[in-house]
């Protein structure tokens, strides 16, 4: 009697997905990005560890602060990656096909626009996720040193994954709107920079200015605070900072309590990372639908 013929189930992969993945990993750029990203993340993490732990006298439980710094640094690196590196992976998804004169032939195949967009999205997002997961072992350093709760990882994961999705779908949509990859990439970076850096800055300036102009007032201050929290929740970096600060102060993961700053009433809202995750998932779904619709129109032009 021979050995049982056991085979793992196979799933038909989209040929576009296979092509995109293979093409990406054959490209030197992918390996360069991964090497540089991992080198920077790991060397700086080790540097923080050496300065914080080896450079100071040992105390019981004294490494917790260093663990927190390592954790914040790694999450910061991941947020910077998904905000400023990931868009480049998707910005040329459709526009490059147009530039290479391969789009017409691709549209001629029985693949639907949704299948094409799906494959392009998974390919670009897959590489971003690969980079994110590659840094996961470094997080063990933060947990080894202590000072970081697993619940904090929930905040970080939600923010990073929702941002990764949003900042992949957005350039993908732009690549259907613009004829050249350069235009799509530049537009993607302009929009992402505005959201990540511009929005919290504008919120800070706006609230400070309005607070001074309108003067003290409990109701008005509460309203301003609500708007402020809602606005800073749109940027992954400010949403993470606010959520972590709230969690450290109150130990509450899901809710955010804003103190009576400027004479306002104490305010309880969903934690900024929850707002960010919800808004980004909804925006990603909308942009995905718009991308599919746009590609269907391009097919018929």
């Amino acid at each position: 009697m021979g050995a049982p013929n056991f085979k793992l189930p196979t799933f038909p992969l989209s040929p576009i997905l296979v092509k995109e993945m293979a093409g990406r990993m054959r490209n030197a750029r992918a390996h360069t990005v991964m090497t540089v990203y991992l080198a920077v993340a790991s060397s700086l993490s080790v540097l923080i560890y050496m300065v914080g732990v080896l450079g100071s006298p040992r105390t019981v439980g004294g490494t917790g602060a260093v663990g927190q710094v390592v954790f914040y640094f790694l999450v910061g690196m991941q947020l910077l990656l998904v905000s400023f590196v990931a868009p480049a992976f998707a910005a040329g998804a459709i526009s490059l096909e147009r530039e290479n004169k391969t789009l017409e032939v691709l549209c001629m195949t029985p693949l639907t626009p949704a299948q094409i967009v799906q494959a392009k999205l998974i390919s670009a997002l897959g590489f971003t996720l690969l980079l994110l997961f590659a840094t996961l072992p470094l997080f063990s350093l933060a947990f080894l040193l202590g000072g970081v709760e697993p619940r904090q990882l929930v905040i970080a994961l939600c923010g990073v994954l929702a941002s990764a999705l949003m900042y992949t779908v957005l350039p993908l949509y732009l690549s259907t709107r613009f004829k050249t990859t350069a235009s799509a990439t530049l537009s993607a970076y302009a929009i992402v920079s505005s959201i990540v850096v511009g929005v919290p800055l504008a919120a800070l300036i706006g609230v400070a200015t309005l607070g001074q102009v309108l003067g003290p007032g409990a109701v008005l201050a509460s309203l301003l605070n609500t708007v402020f929290i809602a606005v800073i929740s749109l940027s992954p970096i400010s949403a993470f900072v606010a959520s972590e600060a709230s969690f450290s102060a109150t130990g509450e993961l899901w809710m955010f309590t804003y103190g009576a700053v400027g004479g306002g009433l104490p305010l309880t809202l969903p934690s900024p990372f929850l707002i960010l995750t919800g808004v980004y998932l909804a925006a990603s779904a909308l942009l995905y639908a718009l991308t599919v619709r746009r590609l269907a129109r391009i097919e018929q032009q």
């Binding site: 093409g23 290479n100 032939v105 195949t109 029985p110």
Partner: peptide
Amino acid sequence: PSDFGVYPDQTCAEYIAFFAGC
């Protein structure tokens, strides 16, 4: 088409196999 492109990261055999897959 009268003017069509190819994928620079594919060999001729891969190009045909890719469209066969599509």
